[in-house]
Design a protein around this nucleic acid. Structure first.
Lengths: 152, 152
DNA sequence: TTTGTTGCAAAACGTTTGCAGCCTC
DNA sequence: GAGGCTGCAAACGTTTTGCAACAAA
């Protein structure tokens, strides 16, 4: 049910946001939304930019600009795991989840824990309005543990 | 008790690590450790670099290099909040805590929740060896909420 | 003496910005 | 038609790298 979101629904959400903020409905913006909609898992700007080159002529600046808008209307989430480039993921059709980040190879796996979700979501602060949160567990993934035993 | 850690203890931990990894015990490395030990709260590379200039002649490269080593021996923690440059904090004498990051002004506040700590710490994975974790709550701080009401 | 580490400066990298032309409204 | 948005390329700020000199082992 939750993940049966079609592109039409997203388009509508995005359009509403653009109209509300008096931004323009450009074809580039919808094309980027569509590519993100199709892609599964995390991606970085470089990946998305290259993906766009196949069918469109879209600049890096526009990719950054559009991601910013999609973040603002909660269709995309931005992450800064290890290293300096940002990673993104679509939020629509995704349940809130948490991340296992391997500090050796940089791989990212997701998991979701109901208890964690409910306890963090219920956390209230007198002087802070929480919009979202990120929980990153750092460590070494299975593949790297094996290599570690060999190399050290 | 826990926070009565003296510089001598840290120095020993660091020395043990350096010896074990067959790295050299240079005066620059100890000087950086000492400055971090003195500083309270988060800091970035720029801040630390400038702090070092007062009493020593240490290059940026060495600051980065040394931070890397301190992270590896668990004396320093690195944070990559969204939209900010990397921030660091000492871990010695600090209890694990969580972060409130204001997406407007970039301010960071800490909080610690026993329930969250214990539930995350108890989380086990078959194929992942967790070393540490970060929980970042993004939102708008009190100061910015006030300004928001005025400006929007 | 050996070679890991340093300072310095240049390069690399991801991201942002300035600008002329384009296209949404 | 006005002005927001685009592509392009240059600029930016942070981090990494190359290299000759230095100093820890």
């Amino acid at each position: 049910m939750r993940d049966e979101i079609t592109y039409e629904v997203l388009k509508e959400i995005f359009t509403n946001y653009l109209v509300q903020k008096q931004h323009r409905k450009t074809p580039e913006r919808y094309a980027i939304l569509e590519q993100i909609y199709v892609h599964e898992g995390h991606f970085d700007v470089d990946y998305l930019f290259n993906l766009m080159q196949k069918d469109y002529r879209v600049s890096l600046a526009t990719v950054y600009n559009t991601l910013e808008l999609l973040i603002k209307c909660n269709l995309v989430l931005k992450h800064q795991f290890i290293g300096q480039k940002a990673q993104y993921e679509k939020t629509f059709g995704n349940q809130t989840h948490h991340h296992l980040v391997c500090t050796r190879c940089g791989s990212i796996k997701e998991f979701s824990d109901k208890k964690i979700r409910s306890i963090v979501n219920s956390k209230q602060f007198a002087s802070f309005e929480t919009t979202h949160y990120s929980l990153y567990l750092y460590g070494i993934c299975k593949k790297c543990v094996t290599q570690k035993l060999i190399s050290e």
